[in-house]
Write a protein that binds this DNA or RNA. Structure first.
Length: 137
DNA sequence: GCCAACGTTGGC
DNA sequence: GCCAACGTTGGC
């Protein structure tokens, strides 16, 4: 199983909105970046990911699961863009802030730190474990 | 609100 | 196919 990180601005799509979708989940649509799209194409059903709030909050707030693999993005007719569906699994008992991540030597290779603009990104199993631990899981 | 970093677009 | 110009993202 692979691990990922999904980034969203609270005002566009928040964790609360994701949770409200329940088991049905929701498309991770609106991505218009090739790198991010390519990562979504690699995702398999059952993969897990972090849900990160960018801009104002800058924190990992919860865990999500991929429930549908890449398919056309319903918000555009442009066949280039695809997306996956994800559902909320659980909230982090303690949110993990970007500040906490940035000071850690063992997380300095995270894409979140090195390429902050990429909205969908891979997370290594080691990074996943460390952050789950920091979040009280 | 600013600006650095990055990605995309389009003229040549 | 290069690269300047431009737009967007997101941390600060």
């Amino acid at each position: 199983m692979a691990y990922w990180l999904f980034k969203s601005e609270t005002t566009t799509w928040s964790w609360d909105q994701q949770v409200a979708k329940g088991e049905a989940g929701e498309e991770w649509d609106g991505v218009r970046n090739y790198q991010a799209r390519n990562f979504m194409r690699e995702m398999k059903r059952g993969d897990q990911g972090f849900f990160y709030h960018s801009q104002k909050d800058r924190e990992i707030v919860g865990l999500v699961e991929v429930i549908a693999e890449a398919h056309p993005d319903s918000t555009t007719d442009d066949p280039r863009w695809e997306c996956v569906d994800i559902k909320a699994l659980r909230a982090m008992p303690k949110p993990v802030y970007l500040d906490q991540i940035k000071v850690r030597e063992d997380l300095s290779d995270m894409v979140l730190v090195k390429n902050s603009r990429l909205s969908v990104q891979p997370v290594t199993e080691q990074q996943w474990r460390i952050i789950c631990d920091m979040g009280g899981l």
